[in-house]
């Protein structure tokens, strides 16, 4: 399974490779692959992949828990960075090919069109998470790192709101992606409920164990803590 991560990287590069090819074809033969409105087509292509990949990043821990495929967790950072990559391409295609690099126009959209404001907020979060995704930052931020990276749920929720707001009709896709997100959240909740229950059981049983241990060897309080805390 050593080949898993490079294989996944290869797959995740395909949508970008297709876009590169399509842009090249667009230069050679206008309208060939991207149609009559190529800027719009690119924005939609990257937007969809951004959402798919960020959901995949969220799915990884669930997949690991449900299938026991431990290796997959080693790819999580990479998948997260791919999500940021596609979101950034989405943003770039919008700024370059729909707004024609007019900062005034981008600014007007950001302030007047809430679906764009919300999308941009999601991108900012992914930017912050990507920038702090290294081991160095993990060490520097300690416990704060975990809390910071829980913002990924906010980012995905915002991306979904973005998609709901820009959908005029034909809700099939946005319903599907929302359902995937809901499923992943439910899986986490059920696990947390499960682990809370087992933690409770574990803590009471370990307290009992500690009690009996202290009764037997009159162990000190610090030992009790070490019995309860590993988790």
């Amino acid at each position: 399974m050593a080949a898993f991560k490079p294989a996944l990287a290869f797959l995740l590069l395909l949508p970008a490779a297709w876009a590169g090819y399509a842009v090249w074809m667009e230069v050679q033969a206008p309208g060939s692959l991207l149609g009559a409105d190529p800027g719009e087509a690119l924005v939609l292509h990257f937007g969809e992949w951004a959402l798919r990949v960020v959901l995949l990043a969220l799915a990884i821990s669930s997949i690991q828990r449900r299938t026991g495929f431990k290796q997959i967790v080693r790819s999580r950072r990479m998948v997260g960075l791919f999500a940021f990559f596609y979101t950034s391409l989405h943003l770039f295609a919008y700024v370059g090919f729909l707004a024609a690099f007019s900062l005034a126009e981008v600014f007007a959209d950001l302030t007047e069109r809430t679906y764009i404001t919300v999308g941009f907020a999601a991108w900012l979060i992914l930017l912050a998470l990507s920038a702090t995704s290294t081991r160095g930052w993990q060490r520097r931020l300690r416990r704060g790192w975990k809390r910071l990276h829980q913002l990924v749920y906010v980012a995905v929720a915002l991306a979904l709101i973005h998609f709901w707001w820009l959908t005029k009709d034909g809700y099939a896709e946005v319903v599907l992606y929302t359902a995937v997100f809901a499923l992943l959240m439910l899986e986490r909740l059920s696990r947390q409920a499960g682990s809370a229950a087992s933690a409770l059981a574990a803590s009471s049983s370990s307290r009992n164990a500690a009690d009996s241990a202290s009764a037997m060897r009159s162990t000190s309080g610090s030992n009790r803590v070490s019995l309860i805390s590993p988790k």
Partner: peptide, 21 residues
């Protein structure tokens, strides 16, 4: 009069292209 989703001040006359919209 802008639409909430799109500015109506300009338009892309199709076919549009990436580098000249």
């Amino acid at each position: 009069v802008d639409h909430p989703r799109w500015s109506q001040a300009t338009e892309r006359r199709l076919p549009s292209s990436l580098f000249n919209q």
